[in-house]
Design a protein around this nucleic acid. Sequence first.
DNA 1: CCAGTACTTAGGTTG
DNA 2: TAAGTACTGG
Length: 762
Amino acid sequence: MDYLDGLNDSQRAAAENFEGPTMVIAGAGSGKTRVLTYRIAHMIRQGVDPFNIMALTFTNKAAREMTERISNIIGGTEAKNITMGTFHSVFSRILRYNADRLGYPSNFTIYDTQDSKSVLKDVIKELALDDKIYKPGMVLGRISSAKNNLISPEAYAQNQEIIQEDHMSKRPELGRIYLAYATRCFKAGAMDFDDLLYKTNVLLRDFPDVLQYYQHKFKYILVDEYQDTNYAQYLIVKKLAAVFENICVVGDDAQSIYSFRGANIQNILNFKKDYPDFSIFKLEQNYRSTKSIVEAANSVIARNEDQIQKNVWTDNVLGKPITIIKTLTDNEEGRVIAGKIYDIKQGEGLDFSDFAVLYRTNKQSRAFEEAFRKLNMPYKIYGGLSFYQRREIKDLLSYFRLTANPKDEEALKRVINYPKRGIGKTSIENIIIAANQYGVSPWEVIAGFDQYPVSLNASTKSKLTEFVTMIRSFTAQLESTPAYELAYHIAKSSGVLKDLYNEKDKGPEEVERYQNIEELLGGIRAFSANQTDDEPRTLSEFMMDVALLTDADQDKEDDKNKITMMTIHSSKGLEFPHVFLVGLEENLFPSQMALNTRSELEEERRLFYVAVTRAEHTCTISYAVSRFIWGNLTSSEPSRFISEINPDYVKHESPYGDRVGGRSLSANARVAERPFTGGLNRMQEPPPNLRSISDLGTSPAAGKSSSSVELKVGYNVNHERFGKGKIIKIEGQGDDKKATIFFPKEGSKTLLMRFAKLEVID
DNA sequence: CCAGTACTTAGGTTG
DNA sequence: TAAGTACTGG
C-alpha cells in the first residue's frame, strides 16, 4: 500500500473508498488530480479491470498525463485500457461506433464553430431573414443552449417559454432556423460540438441495448471539474452510472466559470438528490501557493453569496504580497510587465516557463506580444485562433474531411474552387439551391447530374465531374493507404501544396502558411509512425478527433522555455510559479456584460479566484488607466476586485521610481524612464509595404484590347500584371468567353476575355 | 473570373 | 484598430 503514502488523510480517504457514489470537493491547489490518479491506480491494484473504468477530464492533455502517471504507479500497459478523455472526445468515439443507429456515417464530420456559423449564415439567407437581427453567432448560442438542455428543434418550436423569449427579443423565427440548421447538418453527415453531447443522449435514450452495454462496460465512472458540466453531460453520466452507481465526481464550486456554455452548479446539488447515500470528501489544504496568495484569494471569494462553505488553508510560507501595478495605457502595461518578468527572471535565475500572463479576453494578448517581441523574450499564446483554425490548415483539412465524408458541405464549399479551378460563385450557389430542392447534400448533386439536374453549363459540369473523380480516388485509398502517404498525395494532387509554394515569395505570411502545411503534414507523419498494432494508422483515424484538439492539447518540444499567455478560462487546472494577472479594470474584468445580475458578477469573481490561485510564489496584478478600444483611447477605472482583496496581503507598486531592488539596468527601468513613447514609437516604424508601392511603377499603359484579335489555344500572350503566358484553354460564348492561361510566374489563371487586356506576342 | 478598394462593424469566455 | 464583406473596374 506504500504508493498511497504520499497522500494526506483526506486525500487518501477519497482515493481508497472507490465503491459507491462519491463527491470530492477540492479547493484550489489541494491535489485533486493527484487524488483522481491514485484513486484509479488503487482501483486497478484492487482488481478492477481498466476496461471498466471511464474517466472524464477537462482536457485531453490532462487525460494523457493522468494515464501516464497511473502507468507509472501500477506498472505495465494496463492503464491504456482506461477510457479517458474529455466528454467530447470520449463520446464522439462512442457515437462513431454507433453512428448507424442515428443514421449518421461513422466518418461523420465534426463541425467547428466556424463551420456552424457558416451553415447558419446560409440558412438565414435561405429563409430570407435579416442577418442584422439573426446574427449567426447569436443564433448559434441560442441553438447551443437548447442542445445543452436537450431541447430538440421540435420541442423548441412548441415550448411556450421559449416562444415568449424569442418573441420578446424580436426573433420569432429562431425555431425555424434551428430546425433548418439541424436538418442541414444531418444531410451533411456532420455534428457540431453540442451534438456530441446531445446525440449521445439521444443514442442512450432511444436504444436501450446500447445504454445497457455501456452501463455494464463502465462500471466505474469518474468526472473531473464536475462544477463545469452542463445538463446534457449530467444526464449522460447519470444514465451510465444508473446500474452500479460507482460514480465519483470531483469539483470546486468556487471555480465554476463556464455557465455561459450551460454549466450548472445545480448538478452538484442534484448529486445529493440522485445518490442520497453518497460519501463526501473535502480537500481543503492547499499545497500550491503561499499564504498570501491563498488568503488574498479567500478574502475575495468570500464575498460571493452562492457557495459551499469550506476553509482552504495552507502550511506554506507567507510569501510576498500581491503586487498591484498601475500603468497609463494598455501598451505600457505590456512593456512594464515584460520588463518586470525580465527582471525577475534575471535576478532569480529562472526560466521563461516559470511565468504566465493571464487575461480576461484574448485580444489583450497583443500588447504583451509586442513587448515580448521587442525584448526578444520567447512566449507562447494559447487559445485564440488555434493552429487547426488557420485558413491554410482548414483548407487542406477540408480535403481530408471531404475524402472521409463527401457529404460534408462546409468542406466542399471550401475546396470546390480552391485551388482555383474555374468554378464560380454562381455555379456553387446553383448547386446548393438544387441540393436543397432535392433534399440531398451538394456532393450528391455534383456526383449525379443525371439524377439531380442543375442548370450549369457543360464546361462547368465537366470540371465538377473531374473534381468528383479526384475526391473519389482519394476516398478509395482511405482505408488502405497509411495516413501520411495519403495526406501527402492529397496535398499534392489537389494542387494545395503547389498553390502555397507559389505564394511563398510574396511575403512572410505566405511563408508561414507554407510552413504550417509542412507542420501539419509532419504531424500526420508522426501520427502514422506512432502506430501500436501492425496495421498502419489511416487518415480517417487522424481526422476522427482533429476537430477536438486545442492548443492546450499540444505539447511541443520547442514550446518548453516560453512565457505562457492565455485567458483565465484556459488556465484552469494549471499552475505557474509567477502569475501576472493583467487588465484588472472595471468593464473589462469584471466584464461589462456581467454587471447586470449578481450571479453573473459572482461568476466573474470566481474567475478572479481561479486566476489568483494559479500562482505558486507570486501573483502580480496590473491595470491601465486607459486603453485602446476600437481605435480610440478610452479611460478606465481599476477593477473592484483589487479593492476586495484583504489589504494585509497587498502591496501597491508604481512602475516609476520604485526601484528598490538594487541595480536597475533592466528593460523595466528603461520603460519607466520614458513612459510616453507608446504612440511615438509607432511613427518611427517604416511605412508598410514599400514594395507594393514600387510595384505600381511597373504597371504599363493599357495594352491592346483582346477584342480586336482572335485568340486561340496555343497563342503566347502578354498580360499587364501577370506577364507572359500561354493560352491553354478557351471556353464560353460572347461575354462569358474566358481563357485559361498558364503564366510561368503566377501559375494558371482563368480570365474573362471581355476584361483581360491581352496582347498577342507571336 | 480576379483583385483591389471602400465600407462596416465589432458584446466574451470554449470544446 | 482590424478583419471581414460587398462592391467595382479591368
